[in-house]
Design a binder for these strands. Structure first.
Lengths: 208, 208
DNA sequence: CATAGCTTGTGAATTACTTCACAAGCGCCA
DNA sequence: TGGCGCTTGTGAAGTAATTCACAAGCTATG
């Protein structure tokens, strides 16, 4: 299969969320035009995105809502359950552990790690905090697909090394630093400072 | 000034964070190559990004760390203080209100709104929850630059209307829906479900 | 069953973004 | 001062993403 751009994947995600809404409303079919309107893009873009994976629509009619949402779930790999560990038992980590959205989408948070001796062994959001030093050993018996990094900037580089050594191939990074990882590890960054600065830039440069 | 791509602004943000690190280490100059290495991009990209705003480097030497970080702060509009309101006094809103990163960067959270009668008037994270119905009136006396939306999906569309009517031109959206806003309003989305699905896609399609 | 009205799927055209490649400039040293 | 090594700034080239535009196909209707 040819390389799919990250922007395409983001849009697929978006289309899926609209489709799920429409599915709940009981809508049977939807056109690329309507999907585009909901997603703030163009109908050609929608059709191009979908055409990368097959042809799911009917000419003259549009797309079957349940069929297309099923296909998208399949494309996005949402059929299976993913095993997730959170690294960093601080505030952000805690907020994430409480976040219901993980489980709803089949992402099971099954362990928390931290490097702070004072926290290790403590009960925390239904889990027991483990030492990051044990991650590699643990991962041999208990598989992790995704590591969610909620560590302070300074300690993140070291943590990433351990996550990679544990064989984890996907990282959701909340630390405000850029990660260096081998090519077969996928990283997504969530960086609030960056988003705020983007807004600040937009406000400062309007109409120029 | 010509239109600046969002990807460029994100990188500027990233460069700034590296520069601040280097500044703390006391480094005096840095090359585009080093900046590129830190940011996972190329030196040509770094130079091109910066050249959109002026020429800040010295040939043969590189960039002065304090000078460039100052310029970037200026470009990104981080010189001033921005007034921020949070809309949605739920879990995510609370986590955001507690987040120290806002204030550190000059983003002052000065009000919280919600539509839930039960919450209105309650003391909450050093602020008093106000009714969303009052946002427009409040905004006339107390200026807000940025609205942070942490509302449930269903009620978000209505809230956006009120935010726009209140004259707010920048929105940081945590609700898992796409916002419809006039062209002069800038929106940045933070959508965890989308990030997780991106990782799920990557894990499902490795090596194809 | 023929026609009218829609909507898809997709090459081609366009636009946007990134990388190349090199002249020009700076600092250091003999 | 002149030459060398290094690094910027930037047109030109190349690559990637988006939009255009239209033939092809489906449904409904009389």
């Amino acid at each position: 299969m040819k390389r799919i751009a990250e922007s395409t994947v983001r849009r697929l995600s978006l289309y899926l969320s609209f489709l799920e809404g429409k599915e709940r409303e009981g809508l049977k079919t939807i056109s690329s035009d309507e999907l585009a309107r909901l997603g703030g893009t163009t109908s050609a873009q929608v059709r191009k995105d979908l055409s990368l994976f097959g042809s799911f629509g009917k000419r003259g009619l549009g797309y079957s809502v349940p069929e297309l949402s099923g296909k998208l779930r399949e494309i996005l790999g949402l059929g299976k359950e993913w095993q997730v560990c959170i690294v960093g038992a601080g505030k952000i980590g805690a907020a994430l552990a409480r976040y219901r959205g993980f489980a709803e989408r089949g992402f099971n948070v099954t362990a928390v790690y931290d490097s702070d001796e004072a926290k290790i062994g403590k009960r925390w959001e239904n889990l027991t905090v483990r030492s990051i030093a044990e991650l590699e050993r643990d991962a041999a018996k208990q598989h992790f697909d995704i590591a969610v990094l909620a560590t302070p900037g300074e300690s993140t580089a070291g943590v990433v090394k351990q996550v990679v050594r544990a064989g984890i191939k996907a990282i959701l990074n909340f630390a405000p630093v850029q990660l260096t990882v081998p090519g077969d590890v996928t990283v997504r960054n969530v960086n609030m400072a960056m988003e705020l600065e983007g807004l600040s830039f937009a406000l400062s440069n309007r109409g120029e």
